[in-house]
């Protein structure tokens, strides 16, 4: 049963961040940090379909993590979130057209490995 929640946590977290990133790219680079610009970005976050779906997926992933924390050890639950860091890097090339160089891959793998060690 725990593996179902591992699947939910990793997949929903990955889908959530990919959708959020795609939805925010549509807005374009924020240049106005005045009140008008901040209102515009908040309105974009709460009206852009991809970002709304992304936040729902992130919320689902968070629920999955809470279930894992409640039913398993921290040393099992936290490395699960590290898995999604690597998965997001792999899918960003395909879904977001990002140029994932060896530095980006190495960075993601080192961060994931570090998260695993911190949780032990």
């Amino acid at each position: 049963m725990n593996w179902v929640w591992v699947f939910v946590t990793v997949i929903a977290g990955t889908v959530g961040d990919l959708l959020n990133a795609k939805g925010m790219v549509v807005h374009g680079e924020i240049e106005d940090f005045g009140l008008r610009g901040l209102k515009k970005i908040v309105r974009h976050i709460f009206t852009e379909r991809l970002v709304i779906l992304g936040m729902i997926a992130d919320a689902l992933s968070f629920v999955g993590l809470l279930v894992l924390l409640a039913t398993t050890d921290l040393a099992f639950a936290v490395p699960v979130t590290a898995l999604s860091t690597v998965l997001k890097t792999g899918l960003a090339r395909w879904y977001l057209d990002e140029d994932v160089t060896w530095r980006r891959w190495a960075g993601a793998i080192l961060v994931a490995a570090g998260i695993v060690l911190i949780s032990l």
Binding site: M24, H27, E29, I41, K88, E98, A108
Partner: peptide
């Protein structure tokens, strides 16, 4: 973090 995605890649922001 959502604001950062408007000028930086996901594979930059997350690590």
């Amino acid at each position: 973090q959502l604001s950062m995605y408007t000028w930086a890649d996901l594979t930059y922001v997350l690590p």
